[in-house]
Design a protein around this nucleic acid. Structure first.
Length: 753
DNA sequence: ATAGGGTTAG
């Protein structure tokens, strides 16, 4: 191409001017080189020499600008052609193609309709008319314009254009994208000549409309019929498995592909990485990374554009994050220059930290994205990830700011997803009223919206309201699924609604056809256990149609702690250890149960066992939002600058509640510590410190919100109940299990925790 | 001129 332009300059130097035969070749060269600058120079020569009245030269200019991505210039040339009245079908086709490429399918379709009207049924099976259809059909596909697609299909049959392979393929694709697989199949069957594109369009159509079985069937048929599979076929099947979380199957197909002789490209790498991410297969992910580096597949050559996208890097960041390998993920993220990071680059990194890493880092990156980049704006995915981080951190203030940002933006269909995240964020930050407010304002809701709200009420111990939402949800015609029932059972459990819970449990398979999984049994065991009906809980486990999972035993064990049943706890622990799951909490729970029963020798034995096997108790900590972000407290923590005032206030409070009946329960002393020496520091538990800090730094009458990573300790629960009698604050505490609203001497949990 | 790819919620 460069050589072509060079020859032209040489020709001009020799005194020969290019004419309307030469210009199209020159402009084609510019287009293929994406050389806008040289294209503009040639445009000037075209005008100077009066060739701007020649349709060949003008069409070539239009196509050149479109290929260079200069759509405004392309449009200007098109209008000049129209004004001069020299337009032909090629001009129209080029302009339709330009609109499709510029991401304006509606303009492309409008223009096509205008063109068919001006041509007055003057169509035939010639090359230009075929290209018109093949240009406009993808526009219909991306608009999901089913009726227009059908009209174009009829038009192609009427005008004898349908026998063309390209037209047939494009029609299959448009029907598939509109979700009309029956129509696509009919077209597929009538086509006498098919190629690999025809088959691929069907396979991906089935896969993306949720009929993966059919897709695989066709894929097998392709192999049987000896159709030469290409890289698109393989990548599509790998992606199909990956999207369904079947990473190992995807990797298996990749192995087949390697033996088949077709070469993987960047798209294959992306599909493969998403498969690795779905199953957390770090070693395969690393292997894929190495393969991509070796075969230079980190960027792929797009025939247009600058080739500046980093989709492989984005996928790598996602894969490494989901495998919790943050140094690798962050290294790749940091190695992409700021201006080259697109919205997905930011989103995968933020989402990785939000869901699998340090959520604080996610929020820091989100702020950085807003402040540092003017060209990249967060999309609904980014917002959702940031909200997930806020929910995990109970970062109410940050969450509210994001909500305000959302109100100022326009997310279209993405708003449903964002609103559902807002409901979850507000519930988990302890502001149920705001969650309900978001729900009420939603113009469209799906079952996730309803279950998110129910989960919120459940977490806050407002079970009857959760059940009312459940009934309303069915009244609007939504059908409960397994997750819905899990949430219902959870809500009953945390409100002590044992009989209601059991009723729903029994009716779910009988009346709704939803089979109970092990998680549902765990929830019922929890429900019975909290209420002290331990025998029934045990019977429930014995009657399970499947092998009890570790979650079930943990539920029983927690119940044993609340009701101080040592024998059953020992049995549950035995089962738990036999299930070979990594569970640092089970030893701690058992040692606490021994402690409650005063069996100190057993406590010591468990502690020794933990030390020997290298199991460390997760340290408990609490945090609270303040002016500068949030303050974190560990047991006996004296690192805070206001530490002295905190301890003074705490001692004062404890003195005052002792006077009105508070008695420290020393058997909880072990609960929040990982260090033997500190076990006497009952009064210095992290939640008490956070509360004192909250009282110290907030106005009377305001609500204090505390979050703890583990369950609240029994003594702290008792103490805070008393403290809520003598201070002018409502106290909302979120622990790892639920919310506790302390107010005027009582807690919303009613003992169910 | 047609087919394949990465990020989000209960």
């Amino acid at each position: 191409m460069n050589r072509a332009l060079f020859l032209c300059r040489h020709m001009q130097q020799l005194g020969t001017r290019p004419d309307h035969y030469t210009f199209p070749f020159l402009l084609k060269a510019c287009g293929e080189l994406s050389s806008f600058r040289r294209g503009v120079a040639i445009h000037a020569v075209v005008c100077r020499d009066g060739f701007d009245y020649n349709v060949f030269a003008c069409n070539a200019l239009l196509a050149m600008y479109a290929r260079c991505g200069a759509f405004e210039e392309a449009s200007r040339v098109f209008h000049e052609i129209m004004n001069k009245g020299i337009d032909d079908i090629i001009s129209w086709n080029s302009m339709v193609a330009a609109h499709v490429k510029s991401g304006s399918p509606q303009l492309a379709l409008d223009l096509f309709v205008k063109m068919t009207k001006s041509q007055n049924d003057n169509f035939g099976p010639n090359r230009s008319d075929i290209i018109s259809l093949v240009n406009v059909l993808p526009a219909c596909a991306s608009l999901r314009a089913a009726s227009e697609a059908r009209q174009i299909h009829c038009h192609s049959l009427k005008n004898n254009l349908f026998s063309d392979l390209f037209v047939g393929n494009a029609i299959i694709d448009v029907y598939a994208k509109c979700g009309m697989m029956d129509d696509a199949l009919k077209v597929f069957k009538t086509m006498n000549i098919k190629d690999v594109v025809t088959w691929n369009a069907m396979v991906t159509g089935y896969s993306q409309n949720g009929y993966f079985e059919n897709a695989l069937e066709l894929f097998k048929e392709m192999q049987k019929e000896c159709i030469a599979l290409n890289v698109v076929t393989w990548s599509a099947v790998i992606a199909g498995y990956a999207q369904r979380g079947l990473g190992h199957e995807a990797l298996g197909v990749f192995r087949q592909m390697q033996h088949s002789g077709s070469d993987p490209n960047a798209v294959t790498m992306i599909s493969l990485l998403s498969a690795c991410a779905a199953v957390g297969a770090l070693s395969y992910g690393k292997e894929t990374h190495a393969h991509a580096l070796r075969k230079c597949l980190m960027r792929w050559d797009d025939d247009d554009g600058e080739g500046k996208d980093h989709m492989v890097q984005n996928s790598l960041i996602d894969m490494y994050s989901k495998c919790k390998t943050f140094n690798a993920a962050r290294f790749i993220f940091d190695s992409i220059p700021l201006v080259e990071r697109n919205v997905v680059t930011w989103t995968v990194m933020i989402g990785g930290y939000a869901q699998h890493g340090d959520a604080n880092v996610a929020l820091k990156l989100f702020s950085e994205m807003i402040l540092k980049t003017s060209s990249v704006a967060p999309n609904p995915f980014t917002i959702s990830c940031a909200l997930i981080a806020c929910a995990r951190l109970s970062a109410l203030r940050f969450g509210r700011q994001i909500h305000e940002y959302v109100i100022r933006s326009w997310y279209g269909d993405g708003m449903l997803f964002v609103s559902n995240c807002l409901i979850d964020m507000y519930s988990k930050c302890g502001d149920l009223g705001a969650a309900q407010g978001v729900f009420d304002m939603m113009p469209q809701k799906n079952s996730v919206s309803w279950t998110s709200l129910m989960t919120g009420y459940g977490m806050h111990g407002r079970g009857s309201e959760a059940l009312r939402i459940f009934e309303e949800m069915q009244n609007v015609g939504l059908v409960p699924d397994g997750i819905t029932f899990l949430v219902v059972l959870y809500a009953c459990s945390h409100s002590g609604m044992v009989n209601e819970g059991l009723r729903y449990f029994h009716s779910m398979s009988r009346d709704y056809g939803v089979d109970a999984g092990a998680e549902h049994y765990a929830c019922v065991v929890d429900l019975l256990g909290r209420a002290g009906r331990l025998d029934e809980a045990q019977n429930m486990i014995e009657g399970m149609p499947m092998k009890p999972t570790s979650v079930v035993w943990v539920a029983l064990l927690s119940a044993c702690r609340v009701h101080a049943n040592v024998e059953l706890a020992e049995y549950a622990t035995e089962q738990l250890l036999a299930s070979e799951s990594e569970n640092d909490g089970s030893y701690t729970l058992l040692s606490n149960i021994y402690a409650i029963a005063g069996r100190w020798r057993d406590v010591a034995r468990i502690r020794l066992l933990m030390k020997k096997s290298g199991i460390k108790k997760r340290p408990g900590y609490s945090w609270i939002e303040d002016k500068n972000g949030h303050a974190v407290f560990f047991v006996g923590d004296r690192s805070h600058p206001q530490s002295r005032q905190i301890y003074t206030l705490l001692a004062n409070l404890i003195g005052r509640i002792k006077a009105i009946g508070y008695v420290p329960q020393t058997n909880f002393a072990l609960h929040d510590v990982d260090d033997e020496e500190k076990s006497s520091l009952l009064s210095e538990h992290s939640e008490k410190l956070a509360l004192a800090y909250g009282i110290l730094t907030s106005f009377p009458g305001s609500t204090i919100r505390i979050t703890k990573n583990l369950r609240i300790c029994g003594d702290c629960h008792n103490a805070i109940t008393f403290i809520s009698m003598i201070v002018d604050h409502d106290i909302i505490l979120r622990d790892s299990s639920r919310f506790h609203h302390f107010s005027k001497g009582s807690c919303s949990c009613g003992g169910y925790w």
